[in-house]
Design a protein around this nucleic acid. Structure first.
Length: 693
DNA sequence: GCTAATATGTTGTTTTCGGA
DNA sequence: TCCGAAAACAACATATTAGC
């Protein structure tokens, strides 16, 4: 064909709406195409065409690179190398930052067509509302996408993801160019490394690795583990575990040391601490042994290795070495997959697993799922490619664990749909996704059996693991609604009430002197609640700010208490103390920072304006009116009579939800809508069946 | 439902062009 | 003439859509 013959398109670039519906060839002639003309139809070209986004995995790859660069920068900033200081100075240079910002703006503009088209086609809008709720573009610089960076006096950079809620505090004076400058009062930036155990475990001799503590200490630590950890995360199957201990020649040293090292943090004994006066060094010797044993064993996938990884991950999370916790929980999850635990082992006919082995595998797999959800990025957990089943056993611990699994599954969906840069959904509006996920949480709450309900006015107080479960529930609520809290009053109310609830439950735990027995995930939950309180405390409306200040003070007290057992609480207390200053939140001295000592030696907040120091006279919690409205709606929906508790439900008690946010729009068929959500795990069967005893 | 054409985004290379 | 930045281009990957 000669070159000068013009290329004739085989297809029109845009078929008319009618032809597109009928999927027939359209000649594209406007205003009326040939087909519409022939059938005397109105010819329109209204349907918008979708623009493609970046290639699959591209955003993830860029994110990975970004995080790698962040950690490199973090290390650089932290080093004493003068060259690092020069690089830091260069990076801090305004020209570069503005260039960086301009680059990002350019990227946003270039993709703006995608955004607008997306909204029309129902793509979930994952962006964040502005603080003032105006409908300006929701994301306006790189930092909103990344989350928030904070930098302390030691130039230690910290990254706080969106789920931290810290972006709510962008209006503060200390927030500039995407960085919160926060006073670091207790040197937590280095704490992880300082307390990090540890002796040089490379020097441990092989014979020392297999040393075990005395029977008395062993019993003590195992009792602590099975009292405080096992009830909420029963990843050890006790009958099988204690059977293993009977065979002295084949003791699971790695697992034992991992359990000892974690349980030691719950202990008041000083003879198991590396430094007697430092509680955070409790169990260091077992940790060193476990780590050395792990280095020898991590390439051998075994159930006990996974269990050890879970225990070690929990410990590391508690002492503030989050990266290692994240790595080990991820390693555990992948090892579990390597062993095929993500498949339903009841179908493994060729392999003769005993009932105990099956039970153990299920527990371990689901514990991996929970940990990956709570302290890692639930990547592997959200993988729908597993068929392992959990249980419907009545045993309280197992039942609680099963509800925890369901809650984690919902949280995974929240993260996938609300926080992921690229949503798993392509055809639902934000409101719809919010409604569906909110409904899932409500259903979860309603499905709680009586023994897992939290009733603060009951004569029989809930046990600590159940209270932790409720704290996680309210955290999930905050996780879901937080991104929309600035733009939607209903979401903001739910966030505030959830934050109030978390603070109140945590305070209950503290007053009952059992806070120290709660799992370390509580620390982060209380912190995120505190961020909401901080935001509310700065509102002009006194009816909002006053109770928020009271709750903020309570939260800080709780975190101060948690510092005694979980070193990771140090950094959150410091962050909050910094925020209290910078947000000009005026706390009463007797309420705030109880038990904490500032680096300047003073105790409590420096700002004292609020004259009330009577916690019993606290104003109504934020959104309490909404709560009553929702309760009434809930009672109407579920035919529940008005309880006495509701009548005398004073503001100091937590009214059980459901929080009842939006109902699913009638135009949406819930069943079909749910099918569009990421696959939901099957929870209707019953594998984790045994009494945890 | 499915396939192939088309549109669009990324990445790496080459070309252009202004300033030293 | 050289250098560096920006623009242009090609090749490839992938999302979207026309239409069989």
């Amino acid at each position: 064909m000669p070159d000068d013959v013009p290329y004739k398109r085989q297809r029109v670039s845009k078929a008319c709406d009618s032809c597109r519906r009928k999927k027939v060839k359209c000649d594209g002639i406007q205003p009326t195409c040939g087909n519409c003309s022939a059938f005397n139809l109105e010819c329109t070209y209204n349907d918008t065409t979708k623009k493609r986004g970046p290639p699959k995995g591209y955003i993830e790859a860029i994110e990975t690179r970004l995080h790698r660069m962040e950690s490199l920068l973090g290390g650089l900033v932290h080093s004493n190398d003068p060259r690092a200081e020069a690089v830091l100075a260069e990076l801090m240079h305004d020209d570069l930052r503005s260039q960086h910002k301009a680059d990002f703006t350019s990227y946003r503009n270039s993709s703006s067509s995608t955004s607008s088209d997306s909204s029309q086609s129902g793509v979930l809008n994952t962006s964040l509302p502005t603080l003032d709720g105006k409908d300006s573009p929701i994301i306006d610089d790189l930092n909103e996408v990344m989350g928030i960076l904070s930098i302390d006096e030691n130039k230690q950079v910290r990254y706080h993801g969106r789920s931290s809620g810290l972006y709510l505090l962008r209006k503060s004076d200390k927030y500039k160019d995407g960085i919160l400058s926060i006073k670091n009062r207790s040197n937590w930036g280095h704490q992880g490394e300082v307390i990090a155990s540890t002796q040089n475990f490379d020097l441990l001799k092989r014979s020392e690795l297999t040393e075990l503590p005395s029977q008395e200490i062993s019993d003590h630590l195992l009792e602590l583990f099975f009292t405080h950890v096992h009830p909420i995360l029963p990843f050890i199957y006790k009958p099988r575990f204690f059977d293993q201990l009977k065979d002295k020649n084949h003791l699971p040293h790695l697992l034992l040391n991992a359990i000892y090292s974690f349980a030691a943090l719950f202990s008041d004994r000083i003879d198991i601490r590396r430094i007697p006066e430092d509680r955070a060094t409790a169990g260091d010797i077992y940790f060193d042994r476990a780590k050395a044993l792990l280095d020898n064993d991590y390439d051998k996938a075994r159930v006990s290795t996974i269990q050890a990884l879970l225990a070690l991950s929990l410990r590391e999370y508690g002492v503030g070495r989050v990266t290692r916790a994240w790595l080990w929980s991820g390693m555990a999850a992948r090892m579990a997959q390597d062993l095929g635990m993500h498949r339903n082992n009841e179908k493994w006919h060729p392999i003769n697993l005993t009932r105990e082995e099956r039970e153990e595998q299920k527990r371990v797999f689901w514990a991996c799922f929970v940990l990956d959800s709570l302290i890692g990025s639930p990547v592997s957990s959200n993988n729908s490619n597993h068929s392992q089943k959990n249980s419907g056993c009545r045993a309280h611990s197992v039942s609680r664990f099963n509800h925890l699994l369901k809650l984690c599954e919902i949280m995974g969906r929240v993260i996938q749909n609300v926080y992921a840069i690229r949503s798993a959904h392509v055809s639902m509006t934000t409101d719809t996704v919010l409604s569906i996920l909110d409904s899932s949480l409500t259903s979860w709450y309603i499905s709680l059996p009586p023994h897992l309900r939290y009733n603060p006015s009951s004569d029989q107080p809930s046990d600590p693991p159940t209270l932790v479960l409720h704290i996680l529930y309210y955290s999930a609520l905050m996780l879901l609604h937080q991104p929309y809290s600035a733009g939607q009053q209903s979401s903001h109310n739910i966030c505030s009430q959830a934050a109030n609830a978390i603070t109140e439950i945590a305070e209950t735990l503290m007053k009952r002197n059992i806070l120290k027995h709660s799992l370390n995930v509580v620390v982060y939950c209380v912190f995120t609640a505190s961020v909401i309180h901080t935001y509310n405390a700065t509102q002009e409306d006194n009816s909002i700010s006053q109770p928020a200040k009271v709750n903020l003070a309570k939260s800080i007290n709780v975190l101060n208490e948690l510092k005694n057992i979980w070193p990771t609480a140090h950094k959150y207390v410091d962050l909050l103390n910094g925020l209290v200053d910078l947000k000009d939140v005026q706390l009463d001295s007797s309420l705030s920072l109880k038990g904490s000592t500032n680096t300047d030696g003073s105790r409590g907040s420096k700002k004292r304006v609020n004259s009330s120091n009577n916690t019993n006279q606290q104003p109504p919690p934020v959104g309490v009116v909404d709560r009553h409205v929702r309760q009434a709606r809930y009672r109407a929906q579920y035919n529940q009579p008005t309880s006495e508790n509701d009548n005398n439900n004073d503001n100091s008690t937590i009214t059980p939800p459901p929080h009842q946010f939006n109902t699913i729009p009638s135009s949406i068929n819930p069943s079909t809508t749910y099918q569009r959500l990421p696959p939901v795990l099957s929870f209707n069967h019953a594998p984790i069946t045994s009494q945890p005893t």
